[in-house]
Simulated scan of single mutants.
Amino acid sequence: MDVLGLIGIASIFTAGITIAIGSIGPALGEGLAVSQALHSIAQQPDEANTITRTLFVGLAMVESSAIYCFVVSMILLFANPFWNYFINKALEAGTGKLKR
């Protein structure tokens, strides 16, 4: 297997692990937050508007970490900075000159 294939395998594996781990944490955190918010609303129904507003702000902040993991995995799959370097090195080795 050549170096370009290894870079592809490593990129795909890393993107998968990033999404897997990066989505489990926020999912558990959001579930816990919703559970506690519902418990709080059940105990103090008069404060439901304040609790709900605070819950949505907190959920947006927790969800942003999952979105960051998604962005990192998309960069690894579609805009990997190592691809061009290794493609140019392979072309240089094969033809004796650099493509760019």
Rank of each mutant, 00 (worst) to 15 (best):
N84T: 12
N88T: 05
A37T: 05
W83F: 15
F70K: 02
A90C: 07
Q44H: 13
E47N: 12
A90M: 09
F82C: 06
A37M: 03
A79E: 05
V34N: 06
N80V: 04
F82Q: 07
A90S: 12
L38R: 11
T52A: 13
I67E: 04
Y68G: 03
G96K: 01
A66W: 00
W83Y: 13
I67A: 10
V34D: 11
P45F: 10
F86A: 07
A42R: 11
A60W: 04
L76D: 02
S35M: 13
M61N: 06
C69V: 02
V62F: 00
L55K: 02
S35H: 12
E92D: 06
I87T: 12
A79H: 09
G58S: 13
N84F: 09
L76G: 02
A37W: 01
C69K: 01
S35E: 14
V57K: 05
A60F: 06
N84H: 14
W83C: 08
S65T: 14
V62T: 10
I75N: 01
F86G: 01
A79K: 13
S65P: 00
P45V: 06
M74C: 11
R53D: 08
N88I: 02
R53E: 10
G96E: 08
F78P: 04
L32W: 12
M61A: 13
L38G: 06
I51Q: 01
M61I: 13
T52V: 13
V62C: 07
L91Y: 08
V71M: 11
P81R: 05
P45T: 06
G96Q: 06
S73D: 04
T95V: 12
V71I: 15
W83G: 00
V34A: 11
A33H: 06
W83T: 14
I41K: 03
N49C: 08
A79Q: 10
A48M: 14
E63W: 01
A66E: 06
S64P: 00
Y85F: 11
H39Y: 11
C69R: 01
L32I: 14
V62H: 01
T52S: 14
V57Y: 12
A37G: 03
L55A: 00
S64W: 05
M61D: 02
F56M: 11
H39T: 13
S73T: 00
D46T: 07
H39N: 15
V71N: 01
Q44P: 04
T95W: 11
G96L: 05
Q36R: 15
T52I: 14
S73M: 04
V72D: 01
W83Q: 07
A33V: 06
A42K: 09
I75M: 08
F78S: 11
Q36N: 15
F82R: 00
A42W: 07
M61V: 14
A48T: 14
G94E: 10
W83V: 15
L91K: 05
D46L: 09
G58F: 02
E63C: 12
